[in-house]
Design a protein around this nucleic acid. Structure first.
Lengths: 215, 215
DNA sequence: GCCTTGCGTGTCACCAAGTGTCAAGTATGG
DNA sequence: CCATACTTGACACTTGGTGACACGCAAGGC
């Protein structure tokens, strides 16, 4: 009863501490830079001990990257919810748009974080690592969508990779332009470039040796 | 005089120590796993101190990733040396093939390293970070090749990203199959998929609003 | 032959990221 | 009131990585 917010009381308390930690970390890191802030400082700013910090986040990088963690699940959901008959380029465009839009929606909070990530090698590395997981997940979803064998075909992984390349390109431009450029336009332009490959599924993989030869 | 091998004597000595360190590290890491080996052990195995290790490599990850560092330069060189009239898909296929071939060439040494990298989150992250740099370099080269404005157009970054997606996909398959699958065939198949996008440069970016609309 | 200069290395001290352990605090249930 | 489970803080410890200093050794000038 009275479970209005979400889950048990203990879970809500845990969420509270996590939010406090994230808030403190994001503020300090964006202002001072990733290497200039220690975990002790973040913990102190949130009013907990260093040990407790590591009970909530696996690493200092995680505080920032986990802030974008739901993006992976969101993308997969978005892809799964697109009509099966839709051409891949359209389905994938909506897929990455789900996350881009989430960023662009509250740019005031998201932009500094994106700039921090893209500008910090250690964070960029973690972000890309996360993207590699998303790629596998999206590839699995694409294979299921199209009834392809994930282990035999290359298309699913390549399609997912191309979509995430577009994602990353848009994010980079948006970050570099300090939020000036329009994410929607960037997304459309990116997918206009990669669409010819995304929508040429049937030919390339099912017909034997194909057109490629002569190294 | 007597500068047969390369550079001065000091430089050759330095190279010798670096090779010894790399050799020791690769052996230990591949056998025991990345986290199970300490820097002290690597240094001891190479007969130097921990401090000296860090005078040669910026981090423990670097020992492994720097082993593939020349790939970036090799790719850029490969792209720069392709005839300007060549279609992008062909030029980029040769570009990534330069590195794939280098791996496949001495698979006995390269395969364990690739498997170590792809199987270790921390190393994968560094590898992807490196790839992000390559992407920018290849994008710059592509822009110059095609006379495009790197800051205005999206195609260069997207094309470079697609090529590297193919690169990563091939490497992944090759690693997963324990070197069984043919890298050349995988490369050709991958580029057959992405070629339609790579070779459709002119239309998408130069002609105004274009075919993309209706979200 | 000696002495200076410079470079590479080892030793030591140090900081920060993580982890294991244990004791103390607090909510729940009998 | 007590027993239990869960969370937290405090402490110690390992490891990655850096700074500072001293030593050894080669090259070159006197």
């Amino acid at each position: 009863m009275t479970s209005r917010p979400a889950g048990t009381l203990a879970q809500r308390k845990r969420r509270l501490v996590a939010d406090e930690l994230t808030q403190a970390a994001l503020g300090l890191l964006a202002r001072e830079g990733f290497d200039a802030v220690t975990v002790d400082e973040i913990a102190a700013a949130a009013g907990v001990s260093k040990r407790t910090f590591f009970r909530y986040f696996a690493s200092k990088e995680d505080v920032v990257v986990q802030f974008l963690a739901e993006m992976g699940a969101a993308m997969r959901d978005a892809l799964a919810s697109r009509p099966a008959a839709e051409p891949p380029s359209t389905a994938l465009r909506h897929t990455v748009w789900r996350s881009i839009d989430a960023c662009a929606g509250h740019a005031d909070r998201a932009l500094p974080v994106v700039q921090l990530i893209l500008g910090t090698p250690a964070l960029l590395a973690r972000f890309l690592e996360r993207q590699a997981q998303w790629r596998d997940e999206l590839a699995a979803e694409m294979a299921e969508r199209l009834g392809l064998d994930l282990t035999a075909e290359l298309y699913p992984h390549l399609a997912a990779g191309m979509a995430l390349t577009a994602f990353q390109t848009v994010l980079q431009r948006w970050s570099d332009s300090d939020g000036t450029e329009d994410p929607a336009a960037l997304t459309d332009r990116s997918f206009a470039v990669i669409a010819p490959a995304l929508d040429a599924v049937v030919r390339t993989e099912t017909s034997g040796p194909g057109p490629t030869s002569s190294p």
